[in-house]
Structures are given as C-alpha cells and as structure tokens.
Design a protein around this nucleic acid. Structure first.
Ligand SMILES: Nc1ccn([C@H]2C[C@H](O)[C@@H](COP(=O)(O)OP(=O)(O)OP(=O)(O)O)O2)c(=O)n1
Ligand SMILES: [Mg+2]
Length: 1170
DNA sequence: ATCCTCCCCTAC
DNA sequence: TAAGGTAGGGGAGGAT
C-alpha cells in the first residue's frame, strides 16, 4: 500500500524534504484520536457531552436552521471497531440502524419549523424600513459616526455594507468624511457621499437625494448645492481633502504628507473597548440585491482589497536598507523556502492536491479489493505509511520543518468500491442522490482555538501578525463568527479588521494541526461515503446515497424522519469528537444545492434542502452565491440583464443567459436557477499542470538576481514535478510587472501592487528533445522566457513557472525521443499534429490528431509547411538568409491556398525578435529538402508565444515608415491597434502581413522615407522589450460604428506619429460620441500613455507625445461636450442627454490623474495641458 | 462542428 | 513587518 510513487529527493536540502513521505506526528495523532467505531466512541450521544469545545454561542447561533440542534439527534448507530483493526469491520447494513428520531415525529418537526419561521418573520417585521435596499455601500476612512455605527445603520435598513471595493460587490455609494488626493481621483466617477446622508435618510425613513450630501473636496468650499435639503451639512471642518488634514478626533495615526500611511482605511477607533457585536445578523446573502446603476468598476482588476495608489511606509523604510532587502526578500537564498513555509494559500493548494491523491488512491484500492458482499460496507480508515509512528501526538507547534505539514504517508481506505465509475459521462441525473457538503466552521480559527479556549466566543482571527499594531497589512485567513458580526471577513487585512473591531484578537497559524484535523475529517467522511470529492483542506463533498437509502429502509423510526439529516448530525458529532471543531453540513440531491444548503446550515448545523423548497430557496439568492460564479458573472448579469438576483434571472431565457455568460456558463446558470445540477462528484481527474509562483516579496535589483531567483524557482518546480512523478513538454513563464502608475512600494507590505501580467510559453525539452523535469533545464527555459521581455528587474513583482503537457515519468521511459526532432514527415503527418508524441502525451485526449486529420490541401507538395502564423519568427530570423528567402518565396507561392496567413499572423511576433526582420533576402535558390527540416523547427511547438494580459504599448519610436490606412485595411490590420504598437513591432507586422498577402506588390516599406518620429531614447532600454497586444485586441475597438468610421475616412496617412495617434483618437471619440467609451479601449490608451511617460526622460518625446495626445483629447472632448466638462461627480443630474459625454470626461480625468501621479514621481510636477 | 491557444475567472 | 498559491473550467476567436 504504500505510498506515493515518487521517492524523496536525494538532495537532502531542507526544501527538498518539503513533502516528506512520513509524518509520524500526524499518524500518532490519528492513532490517539477517537474515531467513529472506536470503543469509547458514542456518535449519537447528546452534544453537550461530546462537544467540550463547543462554544455555547455557536450552539445557539442560527435560529433559522431547522432542527439543527444536536440534542434532537437520537440515533442508535452501533458499530464498533478500532482503527488498529481496520480490516475487520465491515458492518452489515442491517446493523446500521439510525433510530428515527430525534424529532418526535412529524408533528413536532413541523411545529418547530413553524416556530422558527415565525421568529424569522417577527424579526423581519420589527426591523426598520428597508430604505437602503439595493444599495451597496463602501465606507472610506475615518467617519463620523464610526464605521461600525454606519454599518449597523446600513444593514438595519436593508442595505449592503461593502468591506472593500472589490469585484464581488458592486458598490453603489462611497461614504467618507475625507479623501486623499489619490482617492479623490480613484473615486471620481462614483457617488461619494458624506455620512450624514445615511443618518438623515434613516431618520427621515426614506433615501434622501445623495447629491445633497455629496462629498466635496475642500478646494471647492463646502457643498455644491447641498444645504438646500440637508439639515445639517455638518462640515466639522475636518472633511478636508488633504490626507494629513484628517480628522481631528483621535485619528490613530497622523498620515504623512503626500502619501497616506495607511493603505486601507482610516477609521476612528470605537469608543467602546468591549466588543460590541451588532445585534443584527450578518446581511443575509439571500437578500443581497443591488440595483446599482453606477457600479464601481475597479479599473485594474488587480489589487482589489488594497489601496491601489498608495505606498506602505514600513516597506519604504525597510527597503531603504539594501541589506534588509537582501535578507528579507526574493534576493535571499532561503526566501522561497521561508515563503512557502508560511504561505497559507500555498498550503491550501498543496493540501488539496494531496487529498485528491489520497482519495483517488483509496478508491482504486477499494475497487481492487473488489470487496464484495458483506465486506462492502467496511469502514474507512486511515493507515500509516511506511513510517514508524514514534512521535507523539501534536508534535506540532515547535519549530518544525515544512514537510511536516504534508499529508504524505496517509492513506485512506474507502468504505466501499465507489460506484461503477469509469465510463459514463459525468452525468447522473438521479433525483435520489444524497449529496452532502461538509465544511468546518472558521476552520483555522476553530483549530487554533483548541489551544486557546480562553478566546472562545470572542472575535478572533488567524493571521501572521500577532502584535497589536493597528496598521498591519497582514491578511486574515479565517475569522471567527464573533468577528464576522463586526463585518470582518476572510482575506481582509488586519488593519481593516481592526477598524471594524479594535478588540479583535489574533492567533497564529498552526498548519500542522490543520492537516491533522483534515485527515481525521476525511477519514470520517470516507467511512460514510459512496464517493468523495475533496474540495479543500476543510471541505468535501460526499455522496451518501446508499448509506441513506439503507438507513431509510432499516429505520425503525417514523416515516417522516430524515435519515439524511440524521446521518449528517452523526458525522458532525464524529468530527466534533475527533477534533473538537464544528463542521456544518448542507444536504441536497445535487452538488449545487448541497453547497447552498451549507450556507444555511452554518454555523454549527446541518440543513437538508428538500426539492419542494428549492424554488423558494433559490430566488432570494444572488448569482454570486452560486459556486463557480463570482464578481465577474455578477457584474455581467447586472449590466446586461439588469439584475443579479436569481429571482429576476429566472425569467430570462436560456438563450439570453447564454448570450450573456457564454454557452456552458449560461446553460449551467439556467439550470442552477432551477436547482438543477447533474454533475457527479469528481475524484479521479488527472493533473494537467504543475507550477510554482511567487507574487510576494519580489524585489530584485538586477538581472543577476532575477536569474538566480528563477533558477531557484525552477528547482522548486522540478521538485514538485518529481513528487508528482511527471515531466513536461511545455513551459509558461508568468510575470507581474509593476504598473507604470503604481508606487514602487504598494500599500500591502512587500505585496505586488497593481501590475501588468505577462505570460509567455514555449516548448520545454531536455537535450534529448524529450519532456523533462530537470531543474537546470527548466531554469534555462524559464530564464530565457523572462529575459526575452527585457524588463528591468526592479520592476518585477511576481514570477511563476508552470509546466504543462505532462507525461508520467514511467510512460516517458519508452517514449520516443521525438520532440524537437525534425522528422521528415509526409504532408499528412506534418500538419497539425504536433509531433506524433504530442498526442501521445495527452492520453486523456484520446487519439485525436491522427495523420488522417490532415486533408492535405495542397496536392503536389512533398512537404507541408506550417501555417505561416504558426511559424516561429525567432527561428525564421535566425535562419541563414538564403534559406529564409527560400521560405519566403515558398509562402508567397502558396499564398493563394487556404494556408494564407490571416491577419492574425501579426500576432506571432516573437518578443525577442529584436532583430528586424529583413525584408526579402535577396537570394533565390535553396532546395526543398531543407523545408521539411526547417519547417519542423518553425512549427508552433518551438515558438514561444507572448501574451500580455493587459495591454502593453510602447511609446512610438521609430516608425515603420508611412503606411496608408487603406493598405492596412487591405492587409486586414486594424489601424487602431496598429497605431498603438511599438514601431518596431509595427514594422515587423507590416512586413509579415505584406509577405503573407500573397504575391501582392510589396512596397518595400523600409525603403521608404523612414519617418522616425520618436527618437528612441538612449539604448538603455530597447523598445522591443515591449510586447504588443495579441490579435484579439485587434477587435477591442470593435464597434461597427468605429470601424466604419475608419473605413469611410480611410485617408492615406501614416500612423506612425503623434498626428496619427491624435487622428486615431479623434476617430475614436467622434465615432463613439454616442456611447461611453469602452473600458478596454480606455485601458489601452491609458497604458499607451503611461508607457510614454514611464519610459520617458524629461524633454523626451515620450513625454511630449503623451502631453500632445492628452491635449488633443481635451480639445476633442471640449468640442463635443464642453457643457458637461465640470459635471464629473454628478451623475444622472441633468442627465440623459449627456451621459456619454460625462463618461468621456470621467475617463479623461481619471487618466489625467494617473498621468499626473507618474509625472510627479518621475519629474516632480504634473502635466500641463495648457 | 470541434479543435487549440491564450487568457480570465473562481475557489479554498 | 508578512509570507497575494495554484489548478482547472471555460470563453473568445482563430484553425482545422
Ligand atoms: N481568503 C481565504 C479563505 C480561506 N482561507 C483558509 C482559512 C479558512 O479557515 C480555510 C477554509 O476556508 P472557508 O472558506 O471554509 O472559511 P472558514 O472555514 O474560515 O469559515 P466558514 O467555512 O465557516 O465560512 O481556508 C484563507 O486562508 N484565505
Ligand atoms: Mg470552512
């Protein structure tokens, strides 16, 4: 039985042991744990006796959970066996008798249920009028009244309190008493209001016009039009604009000039020293509705919970010392180890993978054992690996090496051979299924409280920071339910939590314990489940259909009892017994509903969502409550369908939903709204990739450091590959680079801050051309990919290496050395199949790309050429001129065939092809025989492709010469995009497009007057370090109106200089004058302009270009919408007509603001557009 | 249609 | 000080 296929790394380095094979500590702990079946175990005893750890507050929490009270659980499950004799047991079904019940029959159940409902209604009715319903309010900084008070007010009146401006919640209003300049800019297009608005509205019982309470920076004295209605405009004089001029009342800390010290929020500490949980329940997700018309859209999706344009002073101070940087950031030799050892998210991911593997092994085992008949219901057990258990329980807290947290060595034995998996699609409609979703309540906190019983019942959070500092950016992994009453949530920063609840207590991570509890938990679940899907360390889905069916038939109880719920309570009890922690369980006939039921079950309860209750249950939920749907789907629903509430979406047709969210997603949603979900539990999927990435503490100063770091990261990846027993053929480098407008040190301590994300993938192969898992080789490839970007190492904020196209080491042994091999394949074979072995790799894909697939378009040709767009231009450039020429000629010759490179060929620019593509080599000749060979190398496999996630434009420098718009049209190049490309890229793409465009006349572009408008600044940074936007971008400015606009005015002008950018801008603005500009278009321009600024030096043309373009933009806007230039903050106002214009102005101001930020940082002043 | 690639999104 | 990882689903849009 044993263990994992892979051996430990020989290299003995500490990190190599990260995933040790043994873990006696946990085994010992396991052994000493009382598990179901153990002699002293009494699964059905009343809760009190069994739950020593259980806080009474939790017990009483959630009155809405029907019959969740453990006391009501009375069953007679009898079984006995001990872990030490795992093999014996096998309890006959007949023995498994859950007594009926806990409820005295149906009557009592209904009586209780009605009572609950009445209570709910009473609460509901007694509440204040829900005047804030539909509002999602974010409170910024210090306020008067305090955040806590405002939050209560909001919730009390039916509004939603948004802890921060992230994507999951669309904020309708921002409440503040003061804003920093940065925030003023950031919030410019939102409804920013003073707190009095809420107070007065509540008092008045209606929502007063927010404009009367609009927050106005101090420059503009007082309120705009306000006083009119606002009874007390209450400018305590401190609602200034300057950060420092912050509130007079006890501000925790004065903020420094220019940049505020506290990234998140300023909040006045509550007067009370005592936790003052608010009486109201958390805003029920079920009631979450927002009908925002002016949702907040974080422009950069990146840094959600953190202040985006502020810096962390602690970090600035620390980083000022070079030695400190070397010792505590990515530059340090042991950074990676230390980082991973402490990263909760890393652990979460690792554990999940390990649990999946354990479950999978257990199932295979169960099947192999083919345990038949009587054995079929043997219990699950956890067996030790090879390790001799000598350690004592809870080896835990001490200084331990990382591997201790691994689950290695553990082994589950599944209860019974899980159904007949294997074939059938993943669908299984059965309405008779019983699925349970089991999830620990506040897992990290619950586990941590085992050793801190004194903190039970208090607001507690788990995070790294353990001191009382009020400005910690440490993230909260888990918050207790008491803490949640204050609005504290998992993932929030500690400092933010402290503003919500100053008395919140913090406890440290105890990874060892989490792992240990998790194994016990899974073991228990395994003993009841037909099938199990590992969701995370503290969460799993189990299919208990057969168990429940047996209970039902053998139940002596009244027919109305719910055996599923009985089983759930039994499981809860067992876990409680084994760990001292509460687990909540949602029960339903499918996964979707079971998950939803869990929400209702928490905390410390179980809830069986019965089919009849489904419709009613669903309608009050929001789309984002559905697993798999988040802020993005929510936003789309709101924007395109007017609501994200399922109750509203249920009226949308399947087609509409599909149009809105995509085919599969729309379909899934359509069904989900109706409570339908036929997915099976998944526990046997094959891993597709292995990766390691670090986006924290990356602070490198030069290429040497970067290179060193990459190699270390590669070693980490190699270790993981080895552990998985796989090697790979493809590598992807992921890079986070500081956003030009972001501060060097972001608000989160050593965090990455707002970034541009770049991915670049290329083939990975060892010297034999085969797949590999070798650290050195991975390092080389990764470094080459990173280096190809020519980024300044100082700008790097995150680095990751991912390996794909995996194959198992075993299989690989007899694999063909095919890889980079240059086969001389025949036409048919050469086409799309990546080399034969490619299909070999992905066994799951089946026998796909077979030679037969290739239709062999050409006829006579002996060898096939890769499609031009697939050709690796790097390779092409590197070829000897004569061969290159030969290829060019060949492509031209064939251009009439279907292999003509469509415009997307433009996309294949290799990032490192700094060497301009020579036009046409002047020599004819060459022989076909070379083709096969060469073209093999040119195949996509060997071509790294680049893909900037966000737009990436380099300021124009050295244009490609004049090109008419007409020609671009002919070449199918989007002039808009083209203009934004770096000149060298423009040139290259132009050449390729021309080359591609059959024998068409090739005006030698480079011959023409090279209009070098933008002087490339010194050679320090080559413009080619920039990546151009991928082809899809070619459609970014898609609206027909614009396209047509451009077509119509296809003047013959060049696009290479400021003039061109300006004229493009004009066409954009004019063409779009009836709509608000598209977010992506704006982002594209923003990036373009910022890069001009960022790369510029005073007096440089980059800066001039940026200014010129901005000026022109300003002119254009004034020309179009002069009348609403100043109406930025007022929305709808006189509205209607000028909606579009206001949007344009809004956007303009935002961009200008950001450019000013960069200008200030780089040149010490802001841009003057006068 | 169905594939593939390059992302975005989501979850814990 | 803090430790923002990681794998997979699926959409967009082009190739086949
Ligand atoms: N942003 C997050 C979310 C979760 N976790 C960790 C800590 C949690 O305890 C654990 C489980 O996540 P859950 O979503 O299940 O949250 P909790 O168990 O803490 O609370 P509950 O399940 O009761 O809502 O994962 C984390 O580190 N960071
Ligand atoms: Mg949980």
């Amino acid at each position: 039985m044993s263990r994992s296929p892979r051996a430990l790394r020989p290299d003995g380095s500490q990190s190599s042991d990260y995933f040790g094979d043994e873990d006696s500590g946990f085994l010992q702990a396991l052994r000493t744990t009382v598990l179901p079946g153990d002699p002293g175990y009494e699964p059905l005893a009343p809760a009190p006796a069994l739950a020593p750890m259980r806080p009474s507050t939790v017990t009483s929490a959630r009155p809405t959970v029907v019959a969740s009270t453990p006391v009501t659980v009375v069953k007679s499950l009898k079984r006995s066996r001990s872990l030490s004799e795992p093999d014996e047991v096998a309890i006959a079904p007949e023995d498994d008798t859950y007594a009926p019940s806990k409820f005295d029959g149906f009557g009592d159940y209904m009586r209780r249920k009605r009572a609950k409902l009445q209570i709910q209604n009473a609460e509901f009715e007694s509440e204040a009028p829900k005047i804030f319903e539909g509002l999602a309010i974010y409170i910024n900084g210090w306020t008067q009244p305090s955040v806590q008070d405002l939050r209560k007010l909001i919730v009390k009146h039916g509004g939603v309190f948004q802890p921060y401006l992230d994507k999951k919640g669309l904020v309708t209003h921002i409440i503040t008493n003061s804003l920093t300049p940065a925030k003023i800019a950031e919030f410019k297009h939102m409804k920013v209001v003073r707190p009095e608005w809420l107070v007065d509205s509540a008092k008045a019982g209606i929502v007063l016009p927010w404009r009367n309470y609009m927050y106005v920076p101090h420059q503009r004295p007082e309120h705009s039009q306000g006083a009119a209605i606002a009874q007390r405009t209450l400018h305590n004089g401190f609602k200034t604009t300057h950060p420092k001029a912050t509130p007079k009342p006890s501000t925790p800390k004065p903020s420094p000039p220019e940049q505020p010290a506290v990234p998140d929020v300023f909040v006045e500490p509550p007067s009370s020293d005592q936790p003052e949980p608010e009486p109201e329940p958390e805003p029920d997700a079920n009631r979450f509705k927002i009908h925002s018309t002016d949702p907040v859209k974080p422009r950069s999706v990146d840094d959600a919970p953190y202040a985006r344009w502020t810096s962390n002073l602690h970090a600035q101070r620390a980083m000022a010392d070079p030695e400190w940087r070397k010792a505590h950031t990515s530059a340090s030799a042991d950074f990676i180890d230390g980082y991973y050892r402490n990263s909760r998210l890393h652990h979460l991911s690792t554990w999940k993978a390990e649990l999946k593997r354990l479950v999978q092994e257990a199932q295979i085992c169960a099947e192999d054992l083919g345990n038949t008949g009587s054995d079929a219901h043997g219990e699950a057990s956890l067996k030790e690996g090879a390790a001799a258990p000598t350690k004592v329980t809870d080896a835990g807290d001490g200084a331990v090496d990382p591997l201790q947290y691994s689950m290695r060595g553990a082994e589950f034995v599944l209860r019974s051979p899980s159904k007949s998996k294997g074939k059938g699609k993943a669908r299984e409609p059965s309405q008779d299924r019983v699925i349970m979703h089991c999830d620990f309540d506040s897992f990290f906190v619950s586990a941590g409280l085992i050793g801190r019983p004194d903190l039970r019942g208090k607001p507690v959070v788990v995070c790294h920071s353990q001191d009382g500092s009020s400005s910690s950016t440490s993230e909260i992994a888990s918050a207790s339910y008491e803490a949640r009453k204050f609005g504290i949530k998992n993932g929030m920063s500690l400092q933010q939590a402290r503003t919500l609840c100053p008395t919140v207590r913090t406890i440290p991570y105890e990874f060892e314990r989490y792992k240990e509890f998790s194994l016990k938990f899974y073991t228990i679940l395994m003993s009841h489940a037909d099938d199990l899907q590992a969701v995370s360390v503290d969460e799993a889905l189990i299919d208990v259909s057969s168990t429940v069916a047996q209970l039902r038939t053998s139940a002596l109880a009244s027919p109305t009892a719910d055996p599923a719920k009985d089983l759930a309570e039994s499981i809860r009890s067992q876990v409680r017994n084994a760990t001292g922690c509460e687990v909540s369980i949602g029960i339903a006939h499918n996964i979707l509903l079971a998950r939803l039921a869990t929400r209702r079950a928490k905390p410390a309860g179980s809830f069986h969502l019965l089919p009849d209750a489904v419709p009613e249950f669903m309608v009050e939920h929001d789309i984002a409550d559905l697993h798999g749907f988040g802020g993005s789907a929510r936003k789309k629903a709101q924007e395109k369908l007017g609501s994200s509430r399922l109750g509203d979406l249920v009226r949308k047709s399947r087609g509409v939903l599909i149009d809105t969210l995509g085919r599969a997603t729309g379909e899934t949603l359509y069904n989900a709204i109706r409570g339908e979900d036929d997915r099976r539990l998944e526990s046997d999927k094959k891993r597709k990739s292995v990766s390691a990435e670090i986006n924290y503490g990356i602070r490198l100063v030069d290429d040497e450091e970067a290179r060193t770091f990459i190699y270390r990261l590669a070693r980490e990846v190699a270790r993981r590959l080895e552990q998985e027993g796989v090697i790979g053929r493809s590598i992807t480098m992921k890079i986070l680079k500081r956003d030009a407008a972001a501060p060097v040190e972001p608000s989160k301590f050593l965090g990455h801050g707002p970034c541009d994300v770049y991915n670049k993938q290329g083939p990975l192969s060892g010297r034999d051309g085969r797949a590999t898992g070798d650290a050195e080789i991975i390092g080389e490839h990764a470094w080459r990919l990173l280096d190809s970007f020519h980024f300044d190492a100082k700008e790097l904020r995150g680095l990751g290496i991912q390996i794909q196209k995996l194959q198992s080491v075993n299989e690989a042994e007899n694999a063909e050395p095919g890889q980079a091999r240059l086969n001389f394949q025949r036409v048919e074979g050469a086409r799309r199949e990546r080399p034969v072995d490619e299909s070999t790799v992905d066994t799951s894909t089946g026998p796909v790309a077979g030679p037969s697939n290739a239709p062999t378009s050409g006829a006579v040709v002996a060898f096939d050429l890769p499609r031009f767009s697939q050709v690796d231009q790097d390779v092409l450039c590197a070829l000897p001129a004569d061969i290159r020429e030969e290829l060019d000629g060949e492509y031209k010759r064939r251009s009439a065939s279907p292999a003509i490179p469509p415009p997307d060929a433009l996309d294949s620019r290799p990032s490192r092809a700094r060497t301009p593509v020579p036009l046409f080599p002047s020599k004819p000749g060459g022989k076909l025989t070379n083709f096969a060979r060469i073209t093999q190398q040119l195949a996509p496999r060997s071509r790294p492709s680049v893909s900037p996630k966000k737009s990436i434009f380099a300021p124009g420098r050295g244009g490609p010469g004049k090109v008419s718009a007409a020609e671009l049209e002919k070449l199918e190049i989007d002039p808009v995009v083209f203009t934004l490309l770096p000149p060298d890229v423009q040139r290259e793409q132009l050449l390729r497009a021309r080359l591609a465009k059959s024998g068409a006349a090739l005006p030698d572009a480079t011959q023409g007057p090279r209009k070098v408008l933008k002087p490339r600044r010194r050679a320090t940074r080559s413009p080619s370090t920039q990546i151009y936007a991928p082809p899809p971008q070619a459609h970014v400015l898609e609206p027909a109106s614009l396209k047509q606009q451009m077509k119509g005015s296809a003047e013959k002008r060049s696009f290479a200089d400021v003039d061109e950018v300006q004229s493009l801008l004009e066409r954009w603005v004019v063409g779009y004058r009836h709509w608000a500009p598209k977010e992506k278009d704006v982002e594209m321009f923003r990036k373009y302009l910022l890069q001009c600024m960022d790369n510029a030096v005073v007096g440089d043309e980059g800066l001039e270009t940026a200014v010129a373009v901005m000026k022109w933009w300003l002119v254009l806007l004034r020309r179009q919408w002069e009348h609403c230039e100043d109406h930025g903050l007022e929305d709808e106002g006189e509205s209607g007509k000028c909606k579009a214009g206001q949007s344009w102005w809004k956007v303009f101001r935002e961009v200008k603001q950001e450019m000013d930020v960069v200008a200030r940082r780089r040149f010490g002043g802001s841009l003057s557009l006068l």
